[in-house]
């Protein structure tokens, strides 16, 4: 391991020891954060997978209904009928804080009438198709919320993991080695000082 570029003095030793203490504390905190994030992430990702499979299945069915409606009607009539829709999709967004990750929470509603056209020129299939779209819609919003959370958590997890690893495998061992190096050097200096005094003392005694 590398020894840091410091002077081997008592001052440097003290600052390094302080740094070591905070690095260890930071490491423990980050490790705890990582565990917490991972726990949450596991919950979210399993749900996300379930939701996505469900949405893909239901959306496929809704599209099928819609295509069936489209095939029974003139496309100009179809578009015209849909223009009458007074529906407005509104969405409220709140953010929740999980382990310092901001997770969005969506609350969506549709205002107005979707089925607002004349029944004379449209086929009954269109009603069914729009009903199925309306049914899938809340699922889509939920999916958006969960996938976005999973993404944000994954990002944060990656960052935290890097920090934990940097502390665990680089910062802390380096500090440890440097502290040891300075302690050895100081010990060596102390011993050489003692020996020097002994030599001087014996020389004085010899000349006396």
């Amino acid at each position: 391991m590398a020894i840091m570029n410091v002077n081997a003095t008592r001052m440097a030793l003290l600052t390094l020891k302080k740094k070591m203490a905070s690095a260890k504390r930071g490491h423990k905190l980050l490790k705890d954060k990582q565990d917490g994030l991972m726990q949450k992430f596991m919950e979210v990702i399993r749900e996300a997978k379930k939701m996505r499979e469900e949405v893909e299945e239901k959306l496929g069915a809704a599209f099928k209904n819609f295509i069936r409606a489209g095939s029974l009607m003139d496309s100009a009539f179809l578009e015209g009928a849909l223009l009458y829709s007074t529906a407005k999709a509104k969405i409220e967004v709140k953010t929740k804080n999980v382990m310092s990750v901001r997770i969005p929470q969506f609350k969506a509603e549709i205002e107005g009438e979707v089925v607002n056209y004349s029944f004379l020129q449209t086929s009954g299939e269109l009603d069914i198709a729009l009903q199925s779209f309306l049914k899938v819609y809340p699922l889509l919003i939920q999916l958006a919320e969960i996938e976005k959370s999973a993404e944000a958590l994954a990002d944060e997890l990656e960052k935290t993991r890097r920090r934990v690893n940097a502390l665990e495998y680089r910062m802390i061992p380096d500090l440890k080695d440097t502290i040891k190096f300075i302690q050895m050097k100081l010990g060596e200096m102390e011993r050489s000082a003692v020996i020097n005094t002994m030599i001087v003392k014996s020389k004085i005694q010899a000349s006396a």
């Binding site: 489209g70 578009e79 779209f133």
Partner: peptide, 22 residues
């Protein structure tokens, strides 16, 4: 504060969603 939702795709695919107000 209300946000909006957008949907992006080919004409046939998103016609139905347009009716929902997206």
């Amino acid at each position: 504060m209300d946000y909006k939702i957008a949907i992006m795709g080919s004409r046939e695919a998103i016609l139905g969603f347009k009716a929902l107000g997206l």
